[in-house]
Computed example of a mutant assay.
Amino acid sequence: MNEGPNTSADARGTGAGEMTYVYAVGREGPALDGLAARLPGVDGRPLRSVDGGGLCALVSPVPADTFSEQGLTAQLEDLDRLEAVARAHHAVVDAAFAETSVLPMRLATVYRDDARVADMLVRQRSEFHELLARLEGHVELGVKVCAGPRSAAPPVAAAVTSSEGGAGRAYLRRRQAQQRDSRDAYRAASEVAARAARLAEGVAASRAVHRPQQGQLASGPGVNIANDAYLVPRERAEQLRRELPALAEGVPGVSIEVTGPWAPYSFATAVAAEGADGGGPR
């Protein structure tokens, strides 16, 4: 096994005014080399592979002015541009994960050139090989538990308005009922989330607890109570996808959304960006 950088990759690599964008790292071999020959990267730039330490990184050239720290800051503030970069990044990772076990890099992980990537692979080879062995045969499932209204807002009858102090008192009664409804839904969702965690942890090799989604990031109905990821043996993933949503059946105002299976993003980035030269998300 060659433990040094692949000099042929370095020779054909980053040109003037360019940096090297890293998508994923896997074991050195034909699977990722073949993928690099047929798949584009960010902005349609050609994908290539860089080897080192018995590992292979999928990379592509990107303009240095837009992927330096200042350039990236501007891109991250442009939601349309950020979405385009993220889609291209995830397309490469997903295609690589379909071929072999890989460690997804954080979005917008860039190095000055291919030689820096090869050096990183050699420097971190023990950590990467250990992590690849742990993730072998596993996928990531996302589990979101949400609390929504348990029932429609109670109607305000004309008789109540006239006999109990008018619209102001009726409004207060309605608001109190809505608040009770929200508290009940939140309590029920918390109980369902605890049951979901026990069920998933009985199958999963690891769990990552993420911050509940809010605002534009929230994809499900109601308030996101739990937003977790689980590292699951590939052969058990479909079982969990069926069993977890069933926990919310018959529970008013509570829903469970299961996403995936995905490449193990939540479990693969602890060592992924050491020494990166760009200013991407950390």
Rank of each mutant, 00 (worst) to 15 (best):
N2R: 12
E3W: 08
E3V: 13
G4R: 11
G4H: 14
N6P: 01
T7M: 12
A9K: 05
G13H: 04
A16L: 05
R27G: 11
E28Y: 03
A31I: 05
L32E: 06
D33Q: 11
D33L: 13
A37Y: 09
A37F: 05
V42D: 03
G53F: 00
C56N: 14
A57Q: 02
L58A: 03
P61S: 13
P63A: 01
S68C: 10
Q70I: 08
G71A: 00
L72A: 08
T73E: 09
R81M: 10
L82Q: 02
L82C: 02
R87E: 14
A91F: 00
A98D: 02
R106P: 02
A108C: 14
Y111M: 01
A115Q: 07
R116T: 10
V117F: 00
Q124V: 00
Q124C: 09
F128K: 03
H129F: 03
G137D: 04
V139K: 05
V139Q: 03
V139H: 04
L141E: 01
V143Q: 10
G148E: 06
G148V: 04
S151T: 15
A152V: 10
A159H: 10
A167Y: 06
G168Q: 15
R173M: 12
R173Q: 10
R174G: 14
Q179D: 10
D181F: 05
R183N: 12
S190T: 14
A193H: 00
A196K: 00
A197R: 15
R198P: 05
E201L: 13
E201I: 12
E201S: 14
V203S: 10
Q216W: 13
L217Y: 15
S219H: 06
S219T: 14
G220T: 07
P221A: 08
V223C: 09
V232P: 09
P233G: 11
A237P: 10
Q239M: 14
L240G: 00
R241L: 07
L247W: 01
E249P: 02
V254E: 11
P261R: 03
A263R: 05
Y265F: 15
S266K: 13
S266Y: 07
F267Y: 06
A268K: 08
E274T: 11
D277P: 02
G280W: 01
